[in-house]
């Protein structure tokens, strides 16, 4: 019945969050370049196996370009302003792995499994309900903003008077958000979200082989890269 495509190459969100944390360590401790490439290929492999082929390729090419950056001697004589912007790329280079791993987490996790993960991590209701609401509200917010912008365009409200502009966006947007907040809480209440019993999840959090493999590989890359 109703098969959620269980992809054997998609680690669960908990694994992906944990490895993102691990990758965060590379910002403070540089690891060997060969191991870095190992990490790039690993991330690209997971992207590829989850159907994000473009991200897999982009990952490899952009890391390659970032590696080339310090070798470009032309930069030395570039203009000061240009250098300032290039600085950003260097910053990106330092935080490359946590950022890419975070991208993998965001792109390959569906809402159901994220919510199951929060249960597994024993996050209190006070965190898991707001997070579930956020998934629900992001697309609504986009719709609301679009409608308000439409209304503003027709009324001829433009950025010529920035203060009035900000007021005219903020007010309806916040009022709409408050109204939707009331509606969503009613929806939540009528679905017994406040029920104190232990809840079940239709999409369980599965620990698959890939979760072990992926974690072990990331750990190996980090430890190997630091010791080499």
């Amino acid at each position: 019945m109703l098969d959620y495509e269980e992809n054997p190459y998609n680690p669960n969100p908990v694994t992906k969050l944990f490895t993102t944390f691990l990758f965060g360590l590379t910002a403070f401790h540089q690891i060997n370049i060969l191991f870095e490439w190992g990490a790039v290929l690993l991330l690209s492999f997971i992207f590829y196996k989850n159907g994000f082929i473009r991200d897999a390729i982009k990952n490899i090419t952009s890391f390659g370009l970032l590696c080339l950056l310090p070798n470009l001697t032309v930069i030395q004589s570039a203009h000061f302003i240009l250098k300032m912007f290039l600085m950003l790329l260097l910053m990106y280079r330092i935080f490359y792995f946590p950022v890419t791993s975070g991208k993998l987490l965001v792109k390959t996790s569906d809402v159901g499994s994220v919510i199951s993960s929060m249960d597994k991590l024993k996050l209190p209701r006070a965190v898991s309900i707001p997070v579930a609401v956020m998934f629900r509200f992001f697309p609504s917010f986009r719709e609301e903003r679009r409608n308000i912008k439409l209304a503003m365009k027709i009324r001829g409200i433009d950025f010529k008077n920035p203060l009035a502009y900000i007021e005219h966006v903020t007010v309806p947007l916040l009022i709409m958000s408050s109204n939707i907040s009331d509606d969503i809480s009613k929806a939540a209440e009528t679905r017994c979200i406040a029920n104190p019993i232990k809840k079940t999840r239709y999409i369980p959090l599965k620990v698959k082989f890939i979760d072990f493999l992926y974690t072990v590989l990331v750990l190996a890359i980090l430890v190997g890269g630091l010791l080499w």
């Binding site: 629900r136 509606d183 009613k186 939540a188 979200i193 809840k199 079940t200 239709y202």
Partner: peptide, 29 residues
């Protein structure tokens, strides 16, 4: 069932929307 179905749902996925009540009353899969 409410007047404006646009705002009165809690999930992004239709199946989970159908099932979320059942999850909250603790039914088995």
């Amino acid at each position: 069932v409410f007047q404006n179905p646009k705002t009165h749902f809690f999930n992004v996925n239709t199946t989970l929307e159908l099932l979320s009540y059942l999850e909250n009353i603790g039914l088995s899969r």
